[in-house]
Design a protein around this nucleic acid. Sequence first.
DNA 1: TATGAATGAGCTTTCATTCAT
DNA 2: AATGAATGAAAGCTCATTCAT
Lengths: 209, 209, 209, 209
Amino acid sequence: MTPSALRGLAVLRENERDARRTLIMDAACSLFAKKDFKQVTVREIAKQAGVGVGTIYNYYTSLDELFFDIFLKHAREIEPLLSSRAEKKPPGLNDLCVLYVDYLYTHIPFYQIMSHFMLGGDLSPDATEKLNTTMRTLLDRLETALQDAGAGKDSRVSAHALFAALNGIMISYARYPGRSNDEIRAHTRRLAGRMADIFAKAHADQDAS
Amino acid sequence: MTPSALRGLAVLRENERDARRTLIMDAACSLFAKKDFKQVTVREIAKQAGVGVGTIYNYYTSLDELFFDIFLKHAREIEPLLSSRAEKKPPGLNDLCVLYVDYLYTHIPFYQIMSHFMLGGDLSPDATEKLNTTMRTLLDRLETALQDAGAGKDSRVSAHALFAALNGIMISYARYPGRSNDEIRAHTRRLAGRMADIFAKAHADQDAS
Amino acid sequence: MTPSALRGLAVLRENERDARRTLIMDAACSLFAKKDFKQVTVREIAKQAGVGVGTIYNYYTSLDELFFDIFLKHAREIEPLLSSRAEKKPPGLNDLCVLYVDYLYTHIPFYQIMSHFMLGGDLSPDATEKLNTTMRTLLDRLETALQDAGAGKDSRVSAHALFAALNGIMISYARYPGRSNDEIRAHTRRLAGRMADIFAKAHADQDAS
Amino acid sequence: MTPSALRGLAVLRENERDARRTLIMDAACSLFAKKDFKQVTVREIAKQAGVGVGTIYNYYTSLDELFFDIFLKHAREIEPLLSSRAEKKPPGLNDLCVLYVDYLYTHIPFYQIMSHFMLGGDLSPDATEKLNTTMRTLLDRLETALQDAGAGKDSRVSAHALFAALNGIMISYARYPGRSNDEIRAHTRRLAGRMADIFAKAHADQDAS
DNA sequence: TATGAATGAGCTTTCATTCAT
DNA sequence: AATGAATGAAAGCTCATTCAT
């Protein structure tokens, strides 16, 4: 077999491997919709994915790694969403906030896992670094938008505040008891918009001074 | 023994019982600081409290009951803190936000249990009602402060936004990896202050118009 | 205090002590009516008896001892019942069997405890001796009745067989599913009568030869 | 792999699975011989079987299920034993009684579980039905033998009495304290024989009349 | 590489018994 | 003598992980 053929085979194998990982991640995500992700068991994921229990351990060394991979997958998904849409201009602060919160709402597991790791998950140094990078990228994006809205020198602190505020919308209202999903989604979008307005107005003011 | 002596004894017993409950709750809380509260085991709590495992079940019929008792204890604690201090004037928006976030930071279990429920914990209807009442009281207090800062007709939505924003500070930064506790506390206070400023400025502006 | 007064006091104390034991035993028995005696807990007995948990241990060194005491109490009760009634003649074989089975049926706990100890209870040598004595007395009584009915030299084996047979009626039919208590009682009495007839006829025959 | 090879493999797996179940059941049975079956723990069974605790739960969803499986296994075993042996004639009354009691003695778990239910065990309706069927079959067999021995119209009641009597031998003497196993077995066989003789003679007499 | 049976540490909860009051 | 809070061993059961096939 020629070297290039071997390489092609390797690529194929890599693709197949990725496909399997995706299969497993999707199975896990579909279960997250039904119960807290901490209560999902390996057996359930394996069954849902249609693979053996052991197979999962051929792709992940532990459940936490799988969870973290799901987190990363979503994080990679959210970035381009925020950076720019097919249009010329990047989204404004308001769009940005609504998009982010809406993404969280439609991908609750992402939010849950992020919270889990933020609030006490034991991450490896490697994973910690990836988490930090991801968060930094999001913060950068928010900071840029804030600066576009007129924020000055302390824009980094405001970006932190805004990032926190948007996450808080989810934790505070994602499961408001007695409300329908539609009502909750509308409420979280409304709050995201209001949050953007408040941050914009506050910083615009600052800008004017 | 005289009736009054008997009553005194009963009071003593009740006090001792409360002391024990507090002992157990405190032990649990100190463990919550180190890991997700759902991962804390009865054995650990017992060991930390310096009592036998069975003793805990003399005071609570289940772990969940203990957890909820901790939540209530803190909820009862936070209200007077925010409503007014011994002084004449109630705290301003900035004080309020810093106080709340600082309370959350120094009472992580309260925040964790609240989060747990908000993200999908299964509480009894009774417990749900209590949680809602607590949250409503907090929202009322924030709304009043916002109105004092100049917020107009839509102050309720802003209060929701502010409440969410403050909670978000905790989830986003309470465990920032690689930072000392002091650094994190300083950061969360700084963010709370900034959040208050932003909300105040935005609504003051609104007020002027 | 005179010696006789002291003795009187001691008797009084002994009576009180017995009254307490009876109180505890009765409480236990009333609970046996509701659930398998192995599932009855010390706490339940104490509550039912209106005494503290520790009090029970002032009268019995262990639960098994209490159970055994209940067994003995009933055993002492059953003996005079079988030996003779107020009439001149002792009861015949048929009466004897029906009486015994009926006593078992109306005192299921007695039967259950007897079974428990017979089938695997760990009795102290002392208790074993008492159990054996009790059983021997019952066997003697049955043997006498069998001899009166005509049994010859091997009457001891037949007495064993009869004793076993009567106990077996209880284990086999005391809880026949789908039958009312009255039906079951009638059935066990009928079987006891039939058993007596069979044993009588078989041994009468033997007698004739 | 060819289809037939696959099928062979499946059969092998099924056999292995059955072998494991048998291994576990046998381990449990050997423990039942030493103590009341309700006191046997999962850990003990696992240790005795030489498997891990979790393994048992790969084969049974609960201990109760295991216990009932053991009961069924024995119930299936006892029927053909009583119905007929390889010979032309079915066993006579004497053989039948000795066989039954001897089976009980050598398969105490069957007897214990049967007793447990009879005295108040909570079986599912399904299990109750199976137990009743088993008992009815045994009664039928005894009744036939009694009729062969000359019993007339009331043979059903006598069959009930005989069934009870044989069971009673076990409860009354299976654990006679201070006797060796051999002595007890000999005694129970002797009593079974005597019981058969008594029932035969009583009914033969009835026949003659 | 895929598998799933085996594993055992670990979970919550119960309860007979002790012992300081 | 009476009490009941404290105790901890032990129960049934779960489940992430391993490993022989």
